[in-house]
Design a protein around this nucleic acid. Structure first.
Lengths: 124, 124
DNA sequence: CGGTATCCATGTTGATACTG
DNA sequence: CAGTATCAACATGGATACCG
């Protein structure tokens, strides 16, 4: 009548409202069209400059990127580093340790996205 | 020239653009403020009616819920079941097997959200 | 280069009312 | 109950120009 082995966190009814609120919190900070993408590119590159970053992310405008970066910085996912010793001043963005805690989320999303794409292709 | 053991998908530079595009695909279908929440509630309940669902999801309006459900149905995450034999007609929404493939994503987001909330509290 | 300011088009949402 | 229609309010986003 009962599973003897629990191999992964099951989605139980009790857990679920908790789940819901945690997922809500997560979506609140890393949701939206761009945030995770920026975080991924930043993790890929170690350090990257504004225009380079903009070029890396298809379709984002300077204004939106600028706003997103401010947001991400406030929440501790990104660090803005200014090299004032160079002229013209060089600004670099780097990902933080905290942004690396998102790795499991990124992996899960990436894997799901990959199989989803496969599924979509099969249906045509 | 080939890895003999792959123990977890590492975030490497080569993998990353692939990552990026997969995550993009995922966000495209399950992104936004409501979709994942609806999916979670549906998975929790097995079957649930429209107004019940609306009450379960804090702050969503009937119009938005209706649109989201249509979208989710189109993408195979939700099934709309009409019990025409009852008067007035009862409509129930149930989650599909395909929506269950999102379990790892939900778990990852939920766990991250939980520790994030903890972190935020500590900083005050 | 690394942004910001402004304007404007478009999209999204909320409130309310209404229907079968 | 299970939505839909309508309209107004607001948010978001692109385009362009501009600045230090």
């Amino acid at each position: 009548m009962e599973d003897t082995v629990v191999f992964e966190e099951p989605i139980t009814a009790q857990k679920c409202s908790e789940n819901l609120s945690s997922v809500e919190d997560a979506i609140y900070v890393i949701g939206g069209k761009w945030k995770l993408k920026i975080i991924i590119v930043l993790q890929e590159n170690g350090n990257i400059r504004f225009n380079e970053l903009q070029r890396s992310i298809q379709g984002i405008s300077a204004r939106v990127l600028s706003n997103e970066l401010k947001d991400l910085e406030l929440n501790g996912f990104v660090k803005r580093v200014v090299h004032a010793d160079q002229i013209p001043v060089v600004v670099e963005y780097i990902s933080t340790d905290y942004s690396r805690t998102l790795k499991p989320v990124i992996i899960a999303l990436s894997q799901w996205g990959k199989t989803h794409k496969r599924k979509i292709k099969e249906n045509f």
